[in-house]
């Protein structure tokens, strides 16, 4: 295991940011800490980096107990949401910083900086100041700066959070490919489930200072441990006591399948290829259903039509919990 967090608790005043959290992150993987804002995921990342200290518990990085080590001694690379560039230094100087303070020979520093700037596609910007770069470029520079010292783990705190949607998506793909290439153990914090599902090898879902579930993107999506994980990873609706995804409900215009729940379409909204329906069942439940436009047309449904709902075969289904929903 590359990072071992054991029984970490952290309080800010009365607020419990992390409540007895334990996670183990294997070497060489790209792990996402996913959860809603204020859930404790950034705090966990900062405790791993040594930027915050845990009230209790331990952090072990690559076999050494790092709990009491200052950030300087942990050999971690940290990338911040708002880039944290050294404004008065050129891009090349920013990247060289960690190597220079380690008193590496000048030729080695130059070679390494050149290599890293090529890796992040910023070679032609080496002599510019960070203020002359776009947000995406600044974040790539920050990444190169963090990688320069060959950290044993790379930690990214909402790295793409401050970027616009298009650049965010591009950098996300690029980070995945970079990781496949560089293979440094990487942990990134995000509140965007799509980002986590797309990029990560493994996802740790954190909510209210606790780990809700750990698993691969497929595991989390197909076998969510609870209602929270299920609803955080995608849309959820409820049908006769179970939680399931709106697109996992079979819609029929006649009671053909056993156990079908009868209802009337109270609302119908078409968005491109899909049609979103709100069905009011005879039990008084409001159920969301998503079907393809073609399917909706073949059934000939409209607002006010009577339909029958059944969970599709193979759907991810969990018993509904009272508290969440």
């Amino acid at each position: 295991m590359s990072i071992d967090v054991k029984n970490v608790t952290k309080k800010f005043g009365d607020f419990v940011a992390l409540d007895d959290v334990s996670v183990s992150l294997p070497k060489g993987q790209l792990t996402a800490l996913l959860g809603p804002s204020g859930g404790g995921k950034s705090t966990l990342l900062r405790i791993i980096a040594g930027l915050d200290n845990a009230d209790s518990g331990s952090v072990n990085i690559e076999g050494t107990d790092a709990t009491r080590l200052p950030p300087q001694k942990r050999n971690v690379g940290f990338v911040f949401q708002h880039y944290a560039v050294f404004k008065h230094m050129t891009v090349a100087k920013n990247v060289a910083f960690g190597l220079e303070i380690r008193k590496r020979p000048k030729s080695e520093v130059e070679r390494r900086v050149k290599e890293l700037l090529e890796l992040v596609h910023l070679s032609q910007f080496a002599h510019r100041l960070p203020s002359q770069l776009s947000g995406g470029q600044r974040q790539r520079m920050a990444l190169a700066r963090a990688l320069a010292v060959e950290p044993s783990v790379l930690l990214l705190d909402e790295p793409f959070g401050a970027l616009d949607a298009k650049v965010r998506k591009e950098l996300r793909d690029w980070l995945r490919r970079l990781h496949d290439d560089v293979h440094v153990t990487t942990v990134f914090v995000t509140h965007d489930q799509e980002e986590a599902l797309e990029v990560a090898d493994e996802i740790v879902v954190i909510n209210n200072g606790r780990v809700e579930q750990v698993g691969s993107p497929d595991q989390l999506y197909d076998e969510p441990a609870n209602d929270f994980v299920m609803s955080f990873l995608g849309e959820v609706t409820h049908l006769s006591g179970i939680s399931l995804r709106p697109h996992d409900i079979e819609l029929e215009s006649a009671p053909r399948l056993a156990g079908g729940v009868e209802g009337t379409i109270s609302r119908m909204l078409r968005i491109g290829f899909e049609v979103r329906l709100t069905v009011l069942t005879v039990d008084g439940e409001e159920v969301s259903v998503v079907v393809s436009r073609t399917h909706a047309r073949s059934l000939g449904i409209a607002e006010g039509s009577t339909v029958w709902l059944t969970p599709a075969a193979g759907a991810t289904v969990i018993p509904r919990m009272a508290a969440v929903g």
Binding site: Q72, R74, G77, F78, I101, A146, V149
Partner: peptide, 12 residues
Amino acid sequence: DVEEAAASLGAT
């Protein structure tokens, strides 16, 4: 952030 970034890069 900037000071924290420098610290994590090993700066005293």
